[in-house]
């Protein structure tokens, strides 16, 4: 009776790994400069490792080891296995390190986390997608998923707002999307020079002539909170019920798995319960300042 294990030693097996925060090694397979401060990275796992499947709207935790970990939504095609694609805007130390990563750079990654877009709510309905700024990144997997199942839903209206024409993401793909006849993509910017022949103005100014049946439509919004709120209010003004609107919210995320408390938004832990939430449930909270 002199050693602990028989008495107090763990009954349940004790994890000896790093737990849910332990990342896996990836390398940058390809890098595309989207704008002055934003790049898209294709991440490939270490040889012999699998890449977990993800749902549109989910995110991963990424770091260039030693430079800080950060939550980045997945912007790749959910139908493409074997890689993770992320669009990163260089803002702080961690994102600057990621955005500066050239092909071959070692990246520590873990995920996917969170609740994504409720894609199945779109089937049989008209779909309105409004994205602003880098908010297009988490919307891209949704778009690709929807377009892969184009016959399963009605009209598709996409409105994308950005700061200037130079800030538009996925330019070649955007051009291809805009050429489609089975969907309408409107792009609008806050300010432009004379070389821009597209729209200038807020995303909400493109909504009045968006074509959808308010009685049978869903809307997916992603962008700055104030933009999503104005957009949701405008959509409600056009008769789309609150129940048909989803928003993707942002708060600081550190653990990604509901342990650290950073990403609280009222009753929600956004990493676990979000980032996509029904607008019906958060409309009131979005109007509370400093929540």
């Amino acid at each position: 009776m002199s050693t602990a294990p028989e008495i107090a030693g763990p009954v349940a097996p004790v994890p000896s790994h790093g737990g849910p925060l332990e990342p896996a090694p990836f390398t940058v397979r390809a890098r595309a400069q989207e704008t002055r401060d934003t790049v898209s990275l294709v991440l490939a796992p270490a040889p012999g490792s699998e890449v977990p499947a993800f749902r549109p709207g989910q995110f991963n935790m990424l770091s260039v080891p030693g430079r800080g970990e950060v939550a980045i939504s997945i912007s790749g095609d959910p139908g493409r296995a074997g890689e993770w694609v992320h669009t990163v805007r260089a803002l702080g130390l961690a994102t600057q390190a990621l955005a500066g990563s050239m092909p071959g750079t070692l990246i520590a990654a873990r995920g996917p986390y969170g609740q994504g877009w409720p894609v199945d709510r779109a089937w049989g309905k008209d779909v309105v997608i409004v994205a602003g700024g880098v908010g297009l990144a988490p919307v891209r997997p949704l778009l690709l998923e929807l377009l892969r199942h184009r016959a399963r839903f009605g009209r598709l209206e996409v409105i994308y707002g950005a700061r200037t024409p130079d800030d538009l993401l996925y330019a070649p793909e955007l051009a291809a999307w805009r050429g489609r006849t089975d969907a309408r993509f409107q792009v609008t910017v806050d300010a432009a020079g004379r070389d821009w022949y597209g729209d200038v103005g807020l995303v909400t100014q493109r909504l009045p002539d968006a074509r959808f049946d308010p009685a049978s439509a869903v809307a997916f919004l992603c962008g700055p909170e104030i933009m999503m709120r104005l957009t949701a209010e405008t959509l409600e003004g056009r008769g789309l019920p609150r129940e048909g609107i989803w928003v993707s919210l942002e708060r600081t995320m550190q653990c990604g798995v509901g342990l650290c408390g950073h990403c609280q938004f009222g009753p929600y832990l956004l990493c676990r319960d979000g980032p996509v939430l029904p607008y019906r449930d958060v409309a009131r909270l979005l109007r509370i300042r400093g929540l």
Binding site: A4, A8, G9, P10, V11, A12, V14, P15, S16, H17, G18, G19, P20, C255, V257, G258, L259, R272
Partner: peptide, 15 residues
Amino acid sequence: GGAAVDPGYARRKAR
């Protein structure tokens, strides 16, 4: 108690 179990906490709790 949730989906993500913290291994250090679990170890110390068990002991």
